[in-house]
Amino acid sequence: MKPATIINVLVVATLLVAPYWLNAYWVDVLNSIGIYAVLALSLNVILGYAGLFHMGHAAFFAVGTYTTAILNTQFGIPVLWLMPLSGLTAGFFALLVARPIIHLRGDYLLIVTIGIVEIVRIALVNNVFGITGGSNGIFGINRPELFGYVIRTPHEFYYLIFGFAAITVLLFLRLENSRFGRALNYIREDDVAAEGSGIDAAHYKLVAFVLGAFWAGMAGTIFAAKMTIVSPQSFTFWESVVMFTIVILGGSGNIRGVLLGAFLIVGLPEVFREFAGARMLVFGAAMILMMIFRPKGILPAQPRTYNLDFLAGPRGGGK
């Protein structure tokens, strides 16, 4: 077996059995990591593959979370049924807000997306349409139910969250190694050349936004179910920064890197709790060191490999 395969197997096995040795507190930390991992993977489609500096991902997460919270508390629709709907709502919201700004580049896009996340948060605080519960938020969200089994404890949530994360990883790996994934990379590398090669850059950027938002919206459903209370404090600009940092620091465009980033960015501050007041200082110093020594992230994106065995010997293009 290749070393990479062995590492994969070990990581998956460890994650499968980890909750048996951990108390509720640490499982809850892992659950947070899991949700951030899914959010960062969804941001990775926009920021990592397509290279769009999007700092407002918390806005899409918020739309998904509130969709679940509102529909569950108002109409009693089972939480997990709301997952695709929350994804669609977030995706539709992304379509509306990304469309006019899709041509912006780099820092300009960054600033506008920061604006979006603030607008959403303030709209939630101001109880827009009278359905978001203002700054108190919404409480009393039902526990999710899977095949008649109600998920309550952190240990139970652990398997729901990491199950969803596993599906996300599998699907996004396929996405990365496809025409769609390549198209986003071409746009990141040089969008004029991409258009000159026949790729509709504006369309693909928009689809990247919608897909990333769709996934963040679905993560919102799980978040709402886990918290049972949602409020605007969970969707501040800082949340967007955390997701952004996970992707950039872990290795943008690399799923393994993003997963590792989620563990480090969300997990390390917990580990560093013994430093008490200095923990964020230690954490910040660690981040600075990593950016100095690994500027492309801890695990930079690897080139794709193609199996060309099916091509029997040399053959001519048009000769």
């Binding site: 025409r179 390549r182 991409a194 090669s197 790729i199 897909l211």
Partner: peptide
């Protein structure tokens, strides 16, 4: 992959097909 970029416009599969 550079040449595959050229193939792009003669292909049809999208994000869902890939997943």
């Amino acid at each position: 992959e550079n040449v595959l970029a050229g193939c792009h416009c003669r292909m049809r599969s999208g994000a869902i097909g890939a997943m």
